[in-house]
């Protein structure tokens, strides 16, 4: 797959945001907030960074792998998977509907190409990614394994079991990213359960940590991932703290937890779509 330029990536991101909003609106359920906030990351990953094959094979030998731990932001993942060729964009019409492969939270049960593990119950994805990364090491496969987690998800204990393990076993072909939008369902993380200093936490666990301070600026996101890759394979797992704004790209959704799990109504959808050019063509 050709790597898209920054300008092309920005165009793709606009379409992906439209896809997310239209999917969630159609069934009046789903999680638009963090899907919009992570759009630059997903687009940069699938259209610029990952060495991947849309002709999907579960084992992914010789390919970079991506795992989504905070599975509730499935809309943005489904959109980039379909837009990069894993399945037809038309299938986005089935999101969260009966007999669909696009389950509310990502699953393997229905065989949707691109998904290698179910996620949604939080805290599990990094462990899975570490296992996949270690299996690659056993096989001498020099690809990279990526995982995305939410910041609220850092409250789960399993995350820290995994963090300890990855450093101990020197899983340095793993690049983890935390979507640092500082919001969770019940409110700001600082009020619900203060994360305080994630950089200090991961550094003290033995990780190499970088900050991508502008997680909704495409160039910064690409540069952050490039930097993370350059720091990999040096004996430590790499953590990319991705500073984003929940709801980015739609003025009335940005920067609040209120759109974590709420769908826009018809009027709100029209307003939102008016802010996001249709660049590839709606599904």
């Amino acid at each position: 797959m050709e790597k898209q330029t920054i300008e092309q990536l920005e165009g793709t991101a606009s379409q992906v945001r439209r896809d997310c909003l239209r999917m969630v609106h159609a069934v009046q359920s789903g999680h638009p907030g963090a899907s919009l906030g992570c759009t630059e990351f997903f687009v940069a990953l699938y259209f610029n960074q990952l060495n991947h094959d849309p002709n999907f094979k579960m084992e992914g030998k010789g390919e970079d792998l991506f795992f989504l731990s905070n599975g509730h932001i499935s809309p943005v993942w489904y959109s980039v998977l379909s837009r990069s060729g894993y399945f037809s964009p038309e299938e986005m019409n089935t999101f969260r509907k009966l007999n669909s492969r696009l389950q509310g939270h990502p699953a393997t049960e229905e065989g949707l190409p691109g998904i290698r593990i179910a996620s949604g119950s939080l805290g599990q994805g990094m462990s899975v990614a570490i296992g996949a990364a270690q299996a690659k090491k056993i096989d001498g496969d020099d690809s990279t394994v990526f995982v995305l987690m939410g910041d609220g998800e850092q409250e789960e204990g399993q995350v820290w079991e995994a963090a300890m393990y990855a450093a101990h076993w020197k899983v340095d072909n793993l690049i983890a990213t935390i979507d640092l939008n500082r919001q969770q369902i019940d409110g700001p993380t600082a009020e619900i359960m203060d994360l305080i200093d994630l950089r200090a936490k991961y550094e003290s666990f033995g990780w190499e940590v970088i900050d991508t301070l502008q997680g909704n600026d495409m160039k910064s996101v690409v540069e952050g991932l490039e930097k993370a890759k350059s720091l990999s394979r040096k004996g430590k797992p790499v953590m990319n703290l991705l500073h984003t704004e929940m709801g980015f790209g739609v003025d009335f959704m940005v920067g609040t937890h209120k759109w974590h799990g709420i769908a826009p109504n018809d009027e709100q959808l029209a307003d939102a779509l008016g802010q996001l050019p249709e660049t590839i063509g709606d599904f």
């Binding site: 579960m58 084992e59 992914g60 792998l65 795992f67 290698r116 593990i117 599990q124 994805g125 990094m126 462990s127 899975v128 990614a129 570490i130 296992g131 996949a132 990364a133 270690q134 299996a135 399993q158 995994a162 393990y165």
Partner: peptide
Amino acid sequence: GIAAGMTI
């Protein structure tokens, strides 16, 4: 979780 990942 690691065991699940290793099966892939």
